[in-house]
Simulated assay, not measured.
Amino acid sequence: MLGTGPPFGLLPPTRPFVNSRHLPSPLPPWPQARVARPYAQAALDELAACGVAAPVPEADTLPVADYLALLNLGRAQAGEDFGWRVGARMRTASFVAYGHAVLSCPRFDDAIALTQRFEGLAHDLGRSELLIDGAQAHYRWHSPWLAAHPCPALPESVMSGILAFATWLAQRPLPVLALAFPHAAPCRDLREAIDQRLGLRVVYDAPVTSATVPAALLHEPIPTADPALFPLLEQHAAQQLAAREQALRATDARTALAAQVQRCIAERLAHDGARLAEVADVLGLSARTLQRRLAEAGTPFQGLLDATRRELALQYLRDPALSMTEIAFLLGYAEQSSFNHACRGWFGEAPGRVRMGLG
Rank of each mutant, 00 (worst) to 15 (best):
C105M: 09
P106F: 08
R107C: 07
A101H: 05
S128L: 14
H142G: 04
H100I: 08
D45R: 08
Q77I: 11
V56Y: 13
W30G: 05
A36G: 01
H22D: 12
V35I: 11
Q32H: 13
L47V: 11
A42W: 12
A101D: 04
A36N: 11
P38R: 04
L130S: 00
C105L: 06
I112N: 00
D110S: 07
A122C: 03
S25T: 15
P31N: 03
A69F: 10
Y67I: 06
V102A: 15
L44M: 09
A42F: 11
F108E: 01
A36K: 12
P57D: 02
P28Q: 08
A93Y: 03
G83A: 07
Q136M: 12
T61L: 04
H138R: 07
G134F: 04
A49R: 14
E129G: 03
A111T: 06
A93Q: 14
H138T: 05
A113G: 03
A36S: 10
S25D: 15
L68Q: 09
W84H: 15
E119H: 14
Y98F: 15
P24F: 03
D109H: 15
A122Y: 07
L68A: 11
W145N: 04
S128M: 13
A111L: 06
W141M: 10
A36T: 04
R89V: 01
I132D: 08
E80D: 15
G126R: 02
N19D: 15
D66I: 04
W141A: 08
T61Y: 12
E58H: 12
T115P: 01
A122K: 01
A93C: 04
A111M: 07
Q116N: 09
R75T: 15
A122P: 03
P144D: 05
Y98Q: 06
Q136R: 15
F118W: 04
Y39S: 00
D66C: 06
G134P: 00
A59K: 02
H138E: 07
Y98E: 10
G126E: 09
P26N: 08
L146I: 05
L62H: 11
W145G: 03
A122M: 09
S104Y: 13
